[in-house]
Simulated scan of single mutants.
Amino acid sequence: MPFTLATWNINSIRLREGQVARLLQEQAPDVICLQECKSPVDKIPTETFAELGYRHMIARGDKGYNGVAILSRLPIKEVGAQDFAALGHARHIAGELENGVVIHNFYVPAGGDVPDREVNEKFGQKLDYLTEMRDWFHSDRPEKSILVGDLNIAPREDDVWSHKQLLKVVSHTPIEVEHLAETQDAGGWVDITRQDIPEGQLYSWWSYRARDWDAADKGRRLDHIWATTDIANAGHSSRILRDVRGWERPSDHAPVFASFDL
């Protein structure tokens, strides 16, 4: 069953209902995983998406912040939602397709502005969240699974506009990159985007602070699609839809796509 999957930090699903609908109409992924929905589940505009063929949804929500949802044209059943680091946040949802593929949708904490857990509680929470993800995958190693989401870390030197200038900036510090690598190794995850696009600068996020984000192009690849080794070779056609960052009232993230022949 070939299918195409997208992941997108939408930064308010109700505020950007129209942008989600446009993406679904223009790109027609079979499954889309959204993060930072900023909405209780019962307030998500499901009717709009159902009219476009996305009649299946599993989600976890918080009022005004966090929140993850999976919209699907294919039947999908919820198979779990973890609260890593006991934050009480809606940051993970997992669903299983009829072909047995499990999709994990994650929104890893951003970590605040200062990369020091002694003075910034949020940075400590981010590291603890990743540590518990790692331990979970160690204890229950996934198979036939895909992990997507805003992981809030750009791991490679060419995942940021300036490796040297961002080494002390949250999202690209060595300790975060190390924690993400340990999490990836624990689950046997393969970075599908970089499997398909192994070389070159690649970004999925550009700050709202830039007057002209496109010209400045100071981006980071914070959004990821991974797959377990048993199905990684089925992944292909990875792409980041940079143009979506330029839509009216955009999210600061662009959607990331991959297709799987399973």
Rank of each mutant, 00 (worst) to 15 (best):
G246Q: 14
A110H: 13
L23E: 08
T4G: 05
A6R: 13
V244G: 00
A110M: 08
V114N: 10
V170H: 10
A59W: 13
T228L: 12
W161N: 02
F49G: 04
Y208Q: 12
D128E: 13
L87I: 05
I10A: 01
W226M: 11
I192F: 02
F106I: 12
K122A: 04
P255C: 09
E248C: 00
D261S: 14
V119G: 01
N105S: 07
L52S: 03
A232I: 11
H138A: 10
I197C: 04
R239C: 05
A234D: 15
E143M: 10
P29W: 01
A94T: 09
G64T: 13
I58D: 02
H104D: 04
P255I: 10
L127H: 06
L71D: 02
H179A: 15
G18S: 10
Q201K: 15
V244E: 12
T131P: 00
S204N: 09
A215S: 13
L5F: 03
G111R: 05
L241G: 00
G188E: 02
T228C: 08
S171A: 07
H92F: 07
E26V: 01
T46V: 14
V108N: 03
T183E: 03
D135K: 12
K63G: 00
A216F: 11
I192T: 06
N99G: 06
K38R: 10
